[in-house]
């Protein structure tokens, strides 16, 4: 049993490394090839854990081979549109100008229920509201509503607005993020002065957010019983 435990610990660390090597992606955003690699990895990793007669190297080698091939493939895909289409497929328009492309739906094996479910997921409950719908390579559907049904923008309403980055978290549970400070063009000196003005040290701050205009919000740490 100890062997199984040790193997599980080693493989856990290796898989975390392998997944990080593949890059940041959520399960729902995986391209078909990446999904295949992820499923294969999880399957292969269990083999040397379940069966201790299998050397662990038999699990490690295929996992890293798959990950490396996936990285090479995504690199090649970035350079060639044809390869990208070959590996990941293409986004397909299934509703254009409010008209459903039944041929495209048939080719994608997309049922009416799938379509309606995806539209509901995009907060569209009437087919007549859709101007354009695109099935992305991940299988998700992107919807553009017809102009009369769409929300008005500030521009539509002639409201003046300024483009500004949102505020970032500069202190999280007493820990200063220098990266966030540099993003808003500030430094630790400014931070100390702001927290001192609030009568707190940085260690006493639970959350502090700030933006590039110097606007900030501080939430103090609460004592626990």
């Amino acid at each position: 049993m100890l062997i199984v435990f040790l193997r599980a610990v080693i493989l856990y660390a290796l898989i975390i490394f392998a997944v990080r090597l593949m890059g940041k992606r959520q399960i729902g955003e995986l391209q078909p090839a990446e999904l295949v690699v992820t499923i294969l990895m999880s399957n292969i990793a269990t083999l040397p854990i379940e069966d201790i007669s299998i050397p662990m190297i038999m699990g490690i080698v295929p996992i890293f081979t798959f990950v490396c091939l996936d990285v090479f493939m995504s690199q090649l895909s970035m350079r060639s549109r044809r390869l990208r289409n070959l590996f990941s497929g293409e986004a397909r328009i299934i509703i254009s100008d409010g008209k459903i492309d039944q041929q495209a739906m048939h080719e994608l094996r997309y049922t009416v229920d799938d379509l309606l479910e995806s539209l509901r997921g995009s907060s569209v409950f009437e087919l007549s509201e859709v101007q354009l719908a695109v099935v992305e390579t991940t299988g998700k559907i992107s919807v553009m509503k017809k102009q009369p049904q769409d929300n008005p923008t500030r521009q539509d309403l002639n409201i003046k607005s300024q483009a500004a980055d949102p505020s970032v978290t500069v202190i999280s549970d007493g820990e200063i993020s220098d990266k966030a400070l540099s993003f808003i063009g500030r430094d630790r000196k400014w931070l100390s002065s702001v927290t001192a003005a609030a009568g707190l040290s940085t260690k006493e701050v639970f959350i502090m957010t700030a933006d590039s205009s110097g606007k900030y919000e501080i939430i103090r740490k609460e004592p626990f019983n």
Partner: peptide, 18 residues
């Protein structure tokens, strides 16, 4: 860097296999 690391891993796997 990721590509370089993957090439290195593949080389290590090839060398280890041989």
């Amino acid at each position: 860097n990721r590509i370089a690391l993957c090439i290195a891993i593949m080389l290590v796997i090839a060398a280890a296999s041989l």
